[in-house]
Design a binder for these strands. Structure first.
Lengths: 328, 328
DNA sequence: TCCTACCTCGTTAGCGCTAACATGCATGTC
DNA sequence: GACATGCATGTTAGCGCTAACGAGGTAGGA
């Protein structure tokens, strides 16, 4: 920086002013400095700047399994939004889904001087860990259920489950069975709640939901159980991967979809239109969630206050070929 | 840091020594310092440390579409390896698959002071961009084809294609058709080359490969074309998502898999065992690639030299139910 | 003409840390 | 007992940058 100043015949401070777009620099001087920077191939050291300003322009992201479609998409949305705001993302993946693991990840991120943290970790342990630190560093939770103290950006899971269940009921099914996600996921529980409430309102029978682990494998295994239920005509599955397994189990058991059994999935992964049959499912706008999360976090960093979470992102029902009126 | 020193009755430098595990500190003093750090809830500022040591302990990752299974898994492997080495990952996603976009991403990462860069961007433009900067900052390419000047960690795509094609040939098929990935992906081209070479060696007819875009949709659309080929009995598809689309197109056209047509996919995504039928495919160890990449990069950062790339990771054929001998 | 105001630029200090050298003290050697 | 050796610690400088203040010059008003 001093070299640039020397070449341009000004002090290093003037160079700094040019870099930071200060208005009090003569245009002529500014151009000389810019020319000098170019000539010396100078790049500002953002670490040094961060040290003195206290802003690193880095946002931490804590995520559970970035191989899953949901977190991966959200991460992408976060990255995009951060990029637009000229910030960077530094990622900490969780090895385990425990409170200690979250706390540790937060600690590591803080050590590296992030301005704020976005957490994509929709399970119970995370919530407590967040509360502990939310007063010391700005934190936003994404894809989590509503909780106190930490602002949340999420899709309305309850409403989404209502959409899925309602769709099946409207088609004329007497009731809807449910293959849920792991119950330590807030989202999974919200979906169960929405499904249950919708059935109750309609006066339909509530069969205890089965619980999978989001994987196609668990969908397949539990699907085999479900296929043996003669009364099953409509099924709401908590994600598309499990739906794939269910579809296969049903097929093997000779129960045709949608003629005998209707299936609704969740997430609308890019592959779901090519399942057999194409899957009716609920779309969540992960990208939108990610960018809302970042914008909210940035506002908090700016203002230094804890802001209330955004209103939930609306889910959308995508009707394809895996649902139909019940056979009579 | 000065405060900690004061509380422990030592200088800030001794505190620094304790933090960095210097051997020349009396155990008694060390403990006093540690107690003081705990009492004051002191955390070292790694930005300041980075400024003075010139090592930020941050690695940049440039990736194309982290929603795809391959890049997402690799990213996870990278994260894990970086974490084990007590480093952090900062991610830059590419908006476009162009050389300019890669150059820009590298520039941004360098500005933020990363020690080195891992690139998951297996397309042509990336290669050139990397060459330009590889002398200024350590760079490792992952999932790219072999190329000069930049160390590469990859799965042997040629061998993988040979595995897939050979498997079908051994089953007794006269020849194997190929649904390839976009030809600006190095990997896709390597797979075509391996497939072609295997056919030639066996003296089998070579039908010009079709080209998809990795998506299930393109697999479906091109699968409809392929389904109309009466001579088709064996097909090698360049990834599992496209295979899903193909399977559906074949099913709709009434061509049964594997009785009439055998299909081999690529990647072994977690869902592929639950396709209809379960997909025979090639497994790539993304996790291993990611961690090899990081280890290599870290060695380069340490030594300051450009190291040769690692030997390719071996692919593995996973035989499931989508392949069988041809009907006679 | 002198004073004030403003704009442009330079100087100094310090962000939190580590590297390099300096200091003081106990130990061992002849 | 004089001197080198090694260890535990303190002191100083500086990484690259920005904040805060200060200095010099130009323009406008009394």
């Amino acid at each position: 920086m001093a070299d640039v100043g020397q070449l341009a015949g000004v002090s290093h401070q003037t160079v700094s002013r040019v870099i930071n777009g200060s208005p009090n620099v003569r245009p002529e001087t500014r151009e000389r400095v810019i020319a000098a920077m170019r000539e010396l191939d100078y790049r500002p050291n953002s670490l040094a700047r961060a040290l003195v300003t206290g802003r690193s322009k880095m946002l931490g992201v804590i995520s559970f399994d970035t191989t899953l479609y949901g977190p991966a998409s959200t991460l992408l949305g976060i990255e995009r939004a951060a990029h637009d705001a000229n910030n960077f993302i530094i990622v900490a993946s969780l090895e385990a889904m425990t409170e200690a693991s979250v706390t540790h990840a937060i600690e590591r991120l803080r050590l590296h001087g992030v301005d704020g943290i976005v957490v994509i970790a929709p399970f119970d342990g995370a919530a407590n860990a967040l509360l502990d630190v939310s007063s010391e560093v700005p934190v936003v939770a994404v894809e989590a259920g509503p909780q106190d103290g930490v602002p949340v950006v999420c899709v309305d899971q309850f409403e989404a489950a209502r959409l899925a269940t309602g769709h099946l009921l409207e088609l004329g099914h007497e009731t809807v069975w449910h293959l849920a996600g792991p119950h330590d996921f807030l989202e999974a529980r919200e979906r169960v709640a929405g499904w249950r409430a919708t059935l109750k309102e309609a006066g339909a029978a509530v069969h205890e939901p089965l619980m999978g682990d989001w994987s196609a494998r668990s969908g397949y295994e539990l699907g085999q159980r479900l296929a043996r239920e003669p009364a099953l005509t409509a099924l709401f599955v908590a994600n598309d991967q499990m739906s794939l397994g269910v579809l296969r189990a049903l097929h093997e058991a000779g129960r045709r979809v949608p003629d005998e059994v209707s299936v609704v999935g969740f997430d609308d992964i890019p592959e779901s239109p090519y399942f057999m049959p194409p899957l009716t499912t609920i779309r969540q706008d992960f990208d939108e969630m990610g960018s809302r999360g970042v914008r909210l976090l940035l506002e908090m960093v700016e203002s230094g206050e804890v802001l209330p979470g955004a209103s939930p992102v609306a889910p959308e029902l995508i009707v394809r070929a895996s649902t139909a009126p019940p056979a009579r």
